[in-house]
């Protein structure tokens, strides 16, 4: 390992899912799903609401029990981990939950320091310093550090969640709808931040999103979830050519075509008519 410069998206698979089956009662949510996540790529994950995108993320993270199939992360089968390996993998991935999932009884600073405190040997000064840096990275003012989660807006909660996910400089970051609820400027900053981290650290990102701008701007590949399987995966340009009716509707619908600059103007409001 002499040169660890971030390699371009290549065949180095960090997470591999094979034949995944997840069911709630009789309802099959995942039915033989295969998926590979390559090192250093940003994989966007789309699918209809309720198709099971969050379930897949949670299954990979081990929060939802699966009925069949295998999941490997960093070459380890997640079913056969020793306690030590579990701890190590916990340090190597970071997760931003949809609602932030901040610890409500801790301040922002304490929230970000939880993973550092539990996994690393650092002085309090260095942890405070790294927290300040992470807050700056995600675009939060320093005076947010002593606030409690209940005092934060939705967008700030997301950013703190991301700062916490990045606290250990993980290799993979799972983002569940990171830009939903953010204003377009913040969402753009969020995209820039992910792109910067990917370029500089070789960060691998698994991103569930409905934000078409994010998909176009930073995703190297996009996977589409349908009927419990990955129905299509590839570069976004390839998906745009797809004949699948759902994919067509997704990317070429009213909201999608804005990319081509052909979006119809909204019909005028009654009082202006």
């Amino acid at each position: 390992m002499t040169d660890a410069a971030p390699s371009p998206p290549g065949p180095d698979v960090v997470i591999s899912v094979r034949g995944l089956e997840v069911a709630f009662g009789d309802h099959m949510v995942m039915d033989g799903l295969d998926l590979d996540l390559y090192r250093g790529e940003v994989l966007g994950f789309v699918g209809a609401s309720g198709a099971g995108k969050s379930v897949l993320t949670r299954t990979i993270l081990g929060l939802v029990p699966k009925r069949g199939g295998t999941i490997e992360a960093f070459g380890h089968n997640l079913d056969h981990l020793t306690h030590q390996e579990k701890l190590q993998i916990g340090e190597r991935w970071g997760v931003l939950f949809q609602e932030g999932a901040l610890f409500s009884s801790l301040t922002v600073r304490q929230n970000i320091e939880v993973p550092m405190r539990e996994h690393l040997k650092l002085s309090q000064a260095m942890m405070d310093g790294l927290t300040a840096q992470k807050l700056h990275l995600v675009g939060l003012p320093q005076d947010a550090a002593d606030k409690y989660p209940s005092e934060l807006s939705g967008g700030m909660t997301k950013r703190v969640g991301l700062a916490r996910a990045l606290a250990l400089d993980p290799e993979i970051v799972f983002l569940d709808e990171p830009t939903s609820g953010l204003d377009p400027i913040s969402a753009g900053d969020f995209d820039d931040l992910i792109a910067t981290l990917q370029k500089t650290l070789g960060l691998t990102v698994f991103m569930v999103t409905h934000d078409l701008d994010s998909l176009f701007a930073i995703c190297n590949r996009v996977a589409v979830l349908g009927h419990g399987k990955v129905s299509a995966v590839g570069k976004i340009e390839d998906l745009l050519q797809s004949d699948d009716p759902w994919i067509k509707a997704y990317f070429h619908g009213k909201r999608g075509v804005v990319r081509a600059g052909t979006r119809a103007a909204p019909s005028p409001a009654p009082h202006t008519a």
Binding site: A5, P6, R109, D128, G129, T131, A132, Q133, L135, H136, L137, Q142, D143, A145, D146, T196, K199, T200, L201
Partner: peptide, 21 residues
């Protein structure tokens, strides 16, 4: 510094912190 690390030093650099009250 390698170009990506130069970016990192700029983006993720030191932030002065106010000590907690």
């Amino acid at each position: 510094a390698r170009s990506e690390y130069a970016v990192l030093l700029k983006e993720a650099g030191y932030q002065p912190i106010e000590p907690p009250k």
